[in-house]
Design a protein around this nucleic acid. Structure first.
Lengths: 109, 109
DNA sequence: CTCCTTTGCTACACTATATGTAGCATATTT
DNA sequence: AAATATGCTACATATAGTGTAGCAAAGGAG
Protein backbone atom coordinates (compact mmCIF):
# COMPACT_ATOMS: atom_id res chain seq x y z
CA UNK A 1 0.00 0.00 0.00
CA UNK A 2 1.82 3.05 -1.25
CA UNK A 3 1.58 6.43 0.37
CA UNK A 4 1.17 9.66 -1.55
CA UNK A 5 2.11 13.05 -0.15
CA UNK A 6 -0.98 14.88 1.01
CA UNK A 7 -2.53 11.77 2.46
CA UNK A 8 -1.96 10.66 6.03
CA UNK A 9 0.72 8.06 6.64
CA UNK A 10 1.85 5.87 9.51
CA UNK A 11 2.50 8.05 12.51
CA UNK A 12 1.50 11.34 10.95
CA UNK A 13 -1.96 12.57 10.15
CA UNK A 14 -0.62 15.64 8.38
CA UNK A 15 0.52 13.98 5.18
CA UNK A 16 3.33 16.50 5.00
CA UNK A 17 5.71 15.45 2.25
CA UNK A 18 8.63 15.07 4.63
CA UNK A 19 6.55 12.69 6.75
CA UNK A 20 5.61 10.64 3.72
CA UNK A 21 9.28 10.48 2.86
CA UNK A 22 10.24 9.45 6.38
CA UNK A 23 7.56 6.80 6.27
CA UNK A 24 9.03 5.11 3.23
CA UNK A 25 12.69 5.68 4.11
CA UNK A 26 11.97 4.33 7.57
CA UNK A 27 11.12 0.94 6.16
CA UNK A 28 13.84 -1.64 5.97
CA UNK A 29 15.72 -1.86 2.63
CA UNK A 30 14.34 1.32 1.14
CA UNK A 31 17.49 3.35 1.68
CA UNK A 32 19.61 0.43 0.56
CA UNK A 33 17.67 -0.04 -2.65
CA UNK A 34 18.00 3.64 -3.53
CA UNK A 35 21.69 3.43 -2.69
CA UNK A 36 22.34 0.44 -4.93
CA UNK A 37 20.40 1.92 -7.82
CA UNK A 38 22.29 5.16 -7.42
CA UNK A 39 25.64 3.43 -7.61
CA UNK A 40 24.98 0.94 -10.32
CA UNK A 41 22.51 2.24 -12.90
CA UNK A 42 19.86 -0.18 -14.16
CA UNK A 43 19.51 -3.52 -12.42
CA UNK A 44 17.24 -6.50 -12.90
CA UNK A 45 15.06 -7.70 -10.06
CA UNK A 46 17.50 -10.49 -9.28
CA UNK A 47 20.50 -8.22 -9.62
CA UNK A 48 19.02 -5.90 -7.09
CA UNK A 49 18.27 -8.79 -4.84
CA UNK A 50 21.89 -9.93 -4.78
CA UNK A 51 23.19 -6.39 -4.36
CA UNK A 52 20.93 -6.06 -1.34
CA UNK A 53 22.30 -9.07 0.52
CA UNK A 54 19.70 -11.41 -0.92
CA UNK A 55 16.72 -9.60 0.46
CA UNK A 56 13.62 -11.75 0.09
CA UNK A 57 11.74 -11.28 -3.16
CA UNK A 58 8.55 -10.64 -1.24
CA UNK A 59 9.95 -7.59 0.43
CA UNK A 60 11.97 -6.39 -2.52
CA UNK A 61 8.86 -6.40 -4.62
CA UNK A 62 6.90 -4.63 -1.94
CA UNK A 63 9.50 -1.87 -1.68
CA UNK A 64 9.80 -1.52 -5.43
CA UNK A 65 6.03 -1.13 -5.62
CA UNK A 66 6.20 1.66 -3.05
CA UNK A 67 9.07 3.36 -4.82
CA UNK A 68 7.35 3.11 -8.17
CA UNK A 69 4.11 4.49 -6.77
CA UNK A 70 6.07 7.41 -5.38
CA UNK A 71 7.72 8.01 -8.73
CA UNK A 72 11.22 7.36 -7.47
CA UNK A 73 11.89 4.17 -9.40
CA UNK A 74 10.74 2.75 -12.74
CA UNK A 75 11.01 -0.58 -14.49
CA UNK A 76 11.88 -0.33 -18.17
CA UNK A 77 13.67 -2.39 -20.83
CA UNK A 78 17.00 -2.02 -19.05
CA UNK A 79 15.62 -3.10 -15.69
CA UNK A 80 14.95 -1.05 -12.58
CA UNK A 81 16.27 2.50 -12.61
CA UNK A 82 15.84 5.69 -10.66
CA UNK A 83 13.50 8.29 -12.08
CA UNK A 84 14.58 11.90 -12.32
CA UNK A 85 13.09 12.43 -8.87
CA UNK A 86 14.82 9.31 -7.63
CA UNK A 87 18.15 10.57 -8.86
CA UNK A 88 17.64 13.93 -7.21
CA UNK A 89 16.77 12.24 -3.92
CA UNK A 90 19.75 9.92 -4.03
CA UNK A 91 21.98 12.93 -4.58
CA UNK A 92 20.73 14.28 -1.29
CA UNK A 93 21.60 10.97 0.32
CA UNK A 94 25.04 10.59 -1.25
CA UNK A 95 26.83 12.86 1.28
CA UNK A 96 25.78 10.46 4.01
CA UNK A 97 28.52 8.08 2.93
CA UNK A 98 31.32 10.51 3.71
CA UNK A 99 29.51 11.64 6.83
CA UNK A 100 29.20 8.06 8.06
CA UNK A 101 32.92 7.49 7.61
CA UNK A 102 33.80 10.51 9.72
CA UNK A 103 31.24 9.48 12.28
CA UNK A 104 32.73 6.00 12.50
CA UNK A 105 36.15 7.51 13.13
CA UNK A 106 34.78 9.63 15.96
CA UNK A 107 33.22 6.56 17.54
CA UNK A 108 36.54 4.74 17.54
CA UNK A 109 38.36 7.59 19.23
CA UNK B 1 20.74 -4.04 20.64
CA UNK B 2 22.80 -1.22 19.22
CA UNK B 3 25.03 -1.55 16.23
CA UNK B 4 28.50 -0.04 16.02
CA UNK B 5 30.25 0.74 12.73
CA UNK B 6 32.80 -1.95 11.95
CA UNK B 7 30.54 -4.70 13.18
CA UNK B 8 28.08 -6.51 10.94
CA UNK B 9 24.50 -5.28 10.95
CA UNK B 10 21.18 -6.50 9.63
CA UNK B 11 21.52 -7.15 5.94
CA UNK B 12 25.19 -6.30 5.63
CA UNK B 13 28.13 -8.32 6.80
CA UNK B 14 30.57 -5.56 5.91
CA UNK B 15 29.86 -3.27 8.84
CA UNK B 16 30.54 -0.32 6.54
CA UNK B 17 29.53 2.87 8.31
CA UNK B 18 26.94 3.77 5.70
CA UNK B 19 25.30 0.38 6.19
CA UNK B 20 25.23 0.83 9.94
CA UNK B 21 23.63 4.21 9.36
CA UNK B 22 21.06 2.76 6.95
CA UNK B 23 20.30 0.07 9.46
CA UNK B 24 19.33 2.53 12.15
CA UNK B 25 17.68 5.09 9.87
CA UNK B 26 15.71 2.27 8.27
CA UNK B 27 13.93 1.57 11.54
CA UNK B 28 10.65 3.23 12.16
CA UNK B 29 10.72 6.53 14.09
CA UNK B 30 14.47 7.02 13.93
CA UNK B 31 14.35 9.71 11.25
CA UNK B 32 11.40 11.33 12.96
CA UNK B 33 13.14 11.47 16.33
CA UNK B 34 16.22 13.09 14.80
CA UNK B 35 13.94 15.50 12.99
CA UNK B 36 12.07 16.56 16.10
CA UNK B 37 15.24 16.97 18.13
CA UNK B 38 16.75 19.00 15.34
CA UNK B 39 13.81 21.37 15.26
CA UNK B 40 13.12 21.77 18.92
CA UNK B 41 16.29 21.56 21.02
CA UNK B 42 16.14 19.56 24.26
CA UNK B 43 13.04 17.52 24.97
CA UNK B 44 11.94 15.27 27.80
CA UNK B 45 11.03 11.68 27.10
CA UNK B 46 7.35 12.52 27.25
CA UNK B 47 7.79 15.65 25.16
CA UNK B 48 9.45 13.62 22.47
CA UNK B 49 6.68 11.09 22.67
CA UNK B 50 4.00 13.67 21.98
CA UNK B 51 6.04 15.31 19.22
CA UNK B 52 6.31 11.92 17.58
CA UNK B 53 2.57 11.25 17.36
CA UNK B 54 2.50 9.42 20.69
CA UNK B 55 4.89 6.70 19.68
CA UNK B 56 4.84 3.92 22.26
CA UNK B 57 7.30 4.36 25.10
CA UNK B 58 8.67 0.89 24.43
CA UNK B 59 9.81 1.83 20.99
CA UNK B 60 10.85 5.35 21.81
CA UNK B 61 13.12 4.02 24.49
CA UNK B 62 14.50 1.40 22.18
CA UNK B 63 15.34 4.00 19.53
CA UNK B 64 16.82 6.38 22.04
CA UNK B 65 19.04 3.58 23.30
CA UNK B 66 20.25 2.94 19.76
CA UNK B 67 20.83 6.62 19.11
CA UNK B 68 22.69 7.06 22.37
CA UNK B 69 24.86 4.01 21.70
CA UNK B 70 25.72 5.51 18.33
CA UNK B 71 26.59 8.82 19.93
CA UNK B 72 23.92 10.77 18.09
CA UNK B 73 21.76 11.62 21.10
CA UNK B 74 22.41 12.21 24.80
CA UNK B 75 20.26 12.62 27.87
CA UNK B 76 21.38 15.39 30.19
CA UNK B 77 19.82 17.79 32.70
CA UNK B 78 17.85 19.55 29.99
CA UNK B 79 16.45 16.36 28.55
CA UNK B 80 17.27 14.57 25.31
CA UNK B 81 19.45 16.48 22.87
CA UNK B 82 21.48 15.82 19.77
CA UNK B 83 25.20 15.37 20.21
CA UNK B 84 27.63 17.20 17.98
CA UNK B 85 27.54 14.22 15.65
CA UNK B 86 23.76 14.16 15.84
CA UNK B 87 23.59 17.80 14.86
CA UNK B 88 25.90 17.27 11.93
CA UNK B 89 23.80 14.35 10.73
CA UNK B 90 20.55 16.22 11.04
CA UNK B 91 22.05 19.02 8.97
CA UNK B 92 22.54 16.50 6.21
CA UNK B 93 18.91 15.52 6.53
CA UNK B 94 17.50 19.03 6.67
CA UNK B 95 17.52 19.57 2.87
CA UNK B 96 15.13 16.65 2.55
CA UNK B 97 12.28 18.87 3.70
CA UNK B 98 12.60 21.22 0.75
CA UNK B 99 13.25 18.30 -1.55
CA UNK B 100 10.09 16.53 -0.36
CA UNK B 101 7.99 19.61 -1.03
CA UNK B 102 9.21 19.84 -4.62
CA UNK B 103 8.72 16.13 -5.03
CA UNK B 104 5.13 16.38 -3.78
CA UNK B 105 4.44 19.10 -6.35
CA UNK B 106 5.79 16.92 -9.14
CA UNK B 107 3.53 14.09 -8.06
CA UNK B 108 0.46 16.29 -8.24
CA UNK B 109 1.26 17.46 -11.74
C1' DC C 1 6.79 14.21 57.21
C1' DT C 2 2.84 13.11 53.69
C1' DC C 3 0.68 13.71 49.41
C1' DC C 4 0.76 14.82 44.68
C1' DT C 5 2.97 15.39 40.27
C1' DT C 6 6.42 14.49 36.91
C1' DT C 7 10.20 12.02 35.45
C1' DG C 8 12.29 8.01 32.58
C1' DC C 9 11.09 3.79 31.61
C1' DT C 10 9.42 -1.52 31.82
C1' DA C 11 5.81 -5.47 31.29
C1' DC C 12 2.98 -7.71 28.48
C1' DA C 13 -0.45 -9.13 25.31
C1' DC C 14 -1.58 -8.05 20.62
C1' DT C 15 -0.86 -6.89 15.66
C1' DA C 16 1.86 -5.82 11.74
C1' DT C 17 5.98 -6.37 9.21
C1' DA C 18 9.92 -8.97 7.54
C1' DT C 19 12.28 -13.42 6.32
C1' DG C 20 13.31 -17.54 3.67
C1' DT C 21 12.19 -21.25 0.72
C1' DA C 22 9.70 -23.03 -3.01
C1' DG C 23 8.11 -22.39 -7.25
C1' DC C 24 4.94 -20.33 -11.10
C1' DA C 25 4.26 -18.01 -15.55
C1' DT C 26 6.29 -15.65 -19.30
C1' DA C 27 10.06 -14.59 -22.45
C1' DT C 28 14.36 -15.46 -24.59
C1' DT C 29 18.33 -18.40 -25.92
C1' DT C 30 20.28 -22.81 -27.70
C1' DA D 1 11.97 -28.83 -27.56
C1' DA D 2 14.92 -27.91 -23.67
C1' DA D 3 17.34 -24.92 -20.88
C1' DT D 4 17.85 -20.43 -18.86
C1' DA D 5 16.50 -16.08 -17.10
C1' DT D 6 12.92 -12.93 -16.15
C1' DG D 7 9.61 -10.64 -12.59
C1' DC D 8 7.16 -12.11 -9.15
C1' DT D 9 3.67 -14.78 -5.71
C1' DA D 10 2.50 -18.20 -1.77
C1' DC D 11 3.01 -19.40 2.61
C1' DA D 12 4.84 -20.70 6.99
C1' DT D 13 7.89 -18.73 10.42
C1' DA D 14 10.26 -15.18 13.00
C1' DT D 15 11.02 -10.49 14.26
C1' DA D 16 9.57 -5.78 15.02
C1' DG D 17 6.19 -2.39 16.41
C1' DT D 18 1.82 -0.96 19.15
C1' DG D 19 -0.94 0.35 23.02
C1' DT D 20 -2.24 0.22 27.73
C1' DA D 21 -1.08 -0.14 32.40
C1' DG D 22 1.82 0.97 35.73
C1' DC D 23 6.41 1.12 38.57
C1' DA D 24 10.32 3.36 40.92
C1' DA D 25 12.78 7.61 41.69
C1' DA D 26 12.90 12.70 42.05
C1' DG D 27 11.00 16.94 43.13
C1' DG D 28 7.48 20.31 44.97
C1' DA D 29 3.53 21.79 48.07
C1' DG D 30 1.27 21.79 52.25
Amino acid sequence: MAKIPGKPVRGSSSGRPIMVLFDVLGKRWTLRILWELHKGKAASFRDLQSKCDDVSPTLLNSRLKDLRALNLVVLDDEGYTLTREGVSLSRKLAPLDAWANEWAKSLDA
